[in-house]
Design a protein around this nucleic acid. Structure first.
Length: 643
RNA sequence: GCCGAUAUAGCUCAGUUUGGUAGAGCGGCUGAUUCGUAAUCAGUAGGUCACCGGUUCAAGUCCGGUUAUCGGCUCCA
């Protein structure tokens, strides 16, 4: 038999007989200690099983426990073992669909008459543990496609058959574990005993192949790790995310409420939430004024004809609230602000000298969202966009986009977001406008991003029908992504509404329009802020910045005087002068995540001082009220301009 | 919209399996207590058990429907 030469990532190579399993070659190439950590190998850019026979000279890169690849392999294998467990427990009543590894774990989709419930987790988990202990090998078999078709046909696994039908190559790989054989590319763990730490997390419905016209399957989600500690850490993280849930915090901190009586997806802002929102809106308006924007206010409804002209009724009518008839004319709630801004534009004649025109509005829009999509503040039916429309000449486009990006990143940074992913979406298959326009605006977006030095990904064909766009997805404290900012170039609406300006040449020209939203929806953005800060907002945003706590009634008068002084100085201060113990008041203020507690006892009263307790439990040295005002003002200024 | 789960006092939850007219803690109110860095004590009020219908002598509990919420899927101009 021929000899092949095998080496480990840059190390010395050794000779083996052709066809030796990767695992056996590794035995001779690495220490025993290292070998026990190797779960698979990378050979010529492909990760393969340890059982793979080696047939040519090759350099192997071990995939060791702890690497992201190793986790993916483990979880993918866990999905298979779960499917085996389910098959063994419930037999032929269950058909298998797909079971991949995902970011934090794995899932498997099953088709069973009755959906799975979490009550069944325990049985499935213990079956999985039993199978893991049994050291069931993952046996890879490469067979002719037709053989696989025959096999799954016999087994009645219609979903696998459908997948097979789409595979182009003549051969496919199957993995056999005990009584269960799955169509799978692999790679996998060598045997089930590698699966020691796992947990099933939840069940959910899921359409076959994500297509809502296809059957609804039941999906079981789980996760797996190599180390018990890692699982524990992950579960703690889930707990942490639960604690930060904006719906829970929104209730606890008295920010907002959603009530059946009012309607689903409609937000009632409570006083604290309303104040938080006012602070954000004020900041937003100030920042826009500084950047050459003018503020507009527009109505919530308009004649239906407007939405016909704009094209909204044709393209998105299903998501608009239905019409109401007033004096025999149909009106509809606005799903977007743009036609109104165009209305303002068209109310007067324009010259090329006026451009760029930058108009912004915190515009409240209503969109019909399907019931299953609603989610706290994140997905609602009535929300306020931080909208703006910039009208400009072609020669101004690039600079305007650059300015928008600049303002965008500045505002995001002020809110504490400096991690984001940027996407440039280009022309989709169905589009309006000339190639020349698309070329101009796509390159303007691209140049602006490059000039700003931003790394971005191109999403080919993901642009809006009327123009290309830039999307910015911010990352929160827990590393989750949220799509907020969007910048879109539009030639469609200027055309539909026959917008024009008089050029230098005395002729009429059509302006270019840029739509943009930075925070996106105020509701959603505040939802993200709540989770990002876990409700402990920076001083400049905190609805209640400080609370005065007296120790006994003896200091009440001094507290009232302090309260007045701080209010006048612009501090958002409240007072808790109830006849309660100091501990009780501190606890309450702490739970409300109030940045400063001003503790006032006889000592402070005598000397005219305040003792400041921070929400992290530490104290500032006692200071005069004026010093505290200065301190808080300084901190606010720093918070608003982080650079 | 689809699959599954859930809905009891302002909040967090018990009671539902085995039908017999509702319970705790927190919060509210009243009183006592005047206290120095995360819950003082006592008393008291508060519920058409989401809504509509059915079964039953009797329904928070069983059955059907509706609505909303939650976990996902789909969707998000």
């Amino acid at each position: 038999m021929a000899e092949i030469s095998v080496s480990i990532a840059g190390g010395e190579s050794k000779q083996f007989s052709e066809g030796i399993a990767a695992a056996d070659a590794i035995k001779d190439l690495v220490s025993n200690k290292q070998r026990k950590k190797i779960i698979a190998v990378r050979a010529e850019d492909n990760i393969v099983d340890l059982t793979t026979p080696l047939t040519t000279d090759v350099e192997l890169q071990p995939i060791e426990i702890g690497s992201p690849e190793s986790l993916e392999i483990l979880r993918h294998s866990a999905a298979h073992i779960m499917a085996l467990a389910v098959k063994e427990l419930y037999g032929d009543g269950v058909k298998v669909a797909i079971g991949p590894a995902i970011a934090d774990g794995f899932y498997y989709d099953f088709d069973r008459e009755k959906a799975f419930t979490p009550d069944e987790f325990e049985a499935i988990e213990s079956k999985m543990a039993e199978l893991a202990e049994a050291r069931i090998p993952f046996v890879r078999k490469v067979v002719a496609k037709q053989a696989a078709v025959d096999f799954f046909q016999k087994a009645g696994e219609e979903y696998k058959l459908e997948l097979l039908g789409e595979i182009e190559s003549d051969t496919v790989s199957l993995y056999e574990h005990s009584s269960f054989t799955d169509l799978c590319r692999g790679p996998h763990i060598p045997d089930s005993s590698w699966l020691k730490v796992f947990k099933l997390l939840r069940v959910a419905g899921s359409y076959w192949r994500g297509d809502e016209t296809r059957p609804m399957l039941t999906r079981i989600y789980g996760t797996a790790f190599f180390d018990q500690k890692e699982l524990k850490k992950y579960l703690t993280q889930l707990e942490e995310a639960k604690k930060r849930d904006h719906r829970k915090l929104g209730k606890e901190l008295g920010l907002f409420t959603i009530q059946d009586q009012i309607g689903p997806g409609l937000i009632l802002w409570q006083p604290r939430g309303a104040l938080l929102r006012k602070l954000i809106e004020d900041y937003w308006k100030d920042e826009h004024y500084k950047n050459g924007y003018q503020l507009l206010y527009t109505p919530h409804i308009a004649r239906q004809d407007l939405w016909k002209t704009s094209g909204h009724l044709d393209f998105y009518g299903e998501n608009m609230y239905s019409a109401m008839e007033i004096d025999e004319v149909k009106y509809q709630l606005k799903p977007m602000n743009c036609p109104f801004h165009i209305g303002v534009f068209n109310s007067t004649k324009h010259s090329y000298r006026e451009f760029p025109i930058r108009w912004c509005e915190l515009g409240t829009v209503y969109r019909y969202e399907r019931t299953g999509a609603l989610h706290g503040l994140m997905r609602v039916r009535g929300f306020t966009q931080d909208d703006a429309h910039i009208f400009c000449r072609p020669d101004q486009l690039e600079e305007e986009i650059f300015n928008i990006i600049d303002l965008n990143l500045h505002i995001l940074k002020t809110f504490g977001f400096d991690q984001y992913d940027v996407y440039l979406s280009t022309r989709p298959e169905k589009y309006v406008g000339s190639d020349e326009h698309w070329e101009l605006s796509t390159s303007a977006l691209k140049h602006a991003l490059e000039k700003k030095g931003l790394a971005y990904e191109v999403d080919p064909g993901e642009g809006v029908f009327y123009g290309p766009k830039i999307d910015i997805k911010i990352k929160d404290q827990l590393g989750r992504s949220w799509q907020c900012s969007t910048i879109q170039v539009d030639f469609n609406l200027p055309d539909r509404f026959e917008m024009s300006y008089t050029g230098e040449d005395g002729a009429e020209h059509q302006p270019i329009m840029i739509h943009r939203a930075l925070m996106g929806s105020l509701e959603r953005f505040i939802g993200v802020l709540i989770e990002h800060y876990a409700g402990a907002f920076p001083i400049w945003m905190a609805p209640e910045q400080a609370r005065i706590l007296n120790i006994t009634d003896d200091q009440a008068e001094y507290c009232e005087q302090l309260f007045g002084q701080l209010r006048l100085a612009g501090v958002r201060i409240e007072k808790d002068l109830r006849n309660e113990k100091l501990n009780y008041k501190i606890r309450e203020a702490q739970l409300m995540k109030i940045p400063y507690m001003l503790i006032i006892g006889d000592r402070e009263k005598e000397e005219g001082l305040v003792t400041v307790r921070l929400r992290n439990g530490k104290n500032l040295p006692p200071m005069r009220p004026e010093e505290f005002i200065e301190h808080i003002q300084k901190e606010c200024a720093q918070g608003i301009c982080p650079e």
